[in-house]
C-alpha cells in the first residue's frame, strides 16, 4: 500500500509536509508499547499509536518504521516533529481510534507486521 493511501484512509492530516509521501508501506502495527514496536514491527511499516512523545519517533527510527499515524487527533509536541523530519519518518494525525485505523487499513489490504515471519 502506498503511503498516500494510508493518509487517505486514515482521513489524516500530514504533520511533516517537508517529507516525501511517495513511499510503499508493507505492513501495519498497532501499539502503544515501544518494546512491542521494536519486537514485532517490520521495516517499512506504519505504526498506529496513541503516544506522541519523541521516543515514539526514536523507536520508529531504530525499527525502520516508515510512518506513524497518531490516533484520536493527538498533536505531537515540536520535539517529536523535529526528530521525525530529521530522520525522514512521515507523521500523520488522524481523528480515528487505533481500532478503527487498524480495521480500515486491514480491510484495505494492509497486512500485519508478523503476517509472514516474525521480524
Amino acid at each position: 500500500m502506498n503511503l498516500r493511501d494510508v493518509i487517505a484512509i486514515s482521513k489524516g492530516e500530514i504533520l511533516t509536509p517537508q517529507l516525501s509521501a511517495d513511499a510503499e508501506i508493507f505492513s501495519g502495527c498497532c501499539a502503544d508499547l515501544m518494546s512491542d514496536v521494536l519486537a514485532y514491527s517490520r521495516p517499512q511499516a506504519v505504526l498506529l499509536t496513541g503516544l506522541i512523545n519523541p521516543q515514539v519517533v526514536r523507536t520508529a527510527q531504530v525499527a525502520d518504521v516508515r510512518a506513524i499515524v497518531f490516533a484520536h487527533d493527538k498533536q505531537p509536541p515540536p520535539e517529536t516533529l523535529a526528530i521525525a523530519v530529521q530522520e525522514n519518518i512521515f507523521l500523520i494525525r488522524s481523528p480515528m481510534s487505533m481500532y478503527e485505523l487498524s480495521g480500515k487499513l486491514y480491510a484495505a489490504g494492509l497486512r500485519s507486521c508478523d503476517a509472514d515471519e516474525r521480524a
Partner: peptide, 16 residues
Amino acid sequence: KTSYEICGALWEIGFR
C-alpha cells in the same frame, strides 16, 4: 496474533 491483525479481523466480521 498482533493487535493490528485482531482489530482488522474484528472489523472485517462487522465490529465497527
